[in-house]
Amino acid sequence: MELHDRSRAGVKILALEGSFDTYTAEPIRRWLDEATRSAPAHVVVNLSQVDFMDSTALSTLVQGMKRAREKGGELYLCGLQSPVRLIFELTRLDRVFEIFVSEEDAVQAIKGEATH
């Protein structure tokens, strides 16, 4: 699992690569904790290079979203591959997260959210 982080227009972006599961979730949890420390915490997680997710990964993202919202921010997801999207659908978490096709769309939407 590789983590690539960058920042665009005040939005923190985390791009992941590989399989996101029990064994690899810890550094991501730490990154999300750090990113949501100060308000407003706007985070986009790019999953376009993630080919597998398990329950630990899902709960890491849910915790991240809760923390972001506590700090008046949002956590959006983008670029889900089919197997990963299927997991979101099966667990019905696709209705909980805002999920975008591209990183571009997600960053734009989160900026739109910030100006409201």
């Binding site: 329950s55 709960s59 809760k66 099966l90 667990t91 978490l93």
Partner: peptide, 25 residues
Amino acid sequence: LWYYQTHARSDLDEVLVVDAYYIAM
């Protein structure tokens, strides 16, 4: 799956996510 992946101090959301995953898979 909850018995494997959560513990007594886990918050409810964590348990629910694990179980949602369990039920789906």
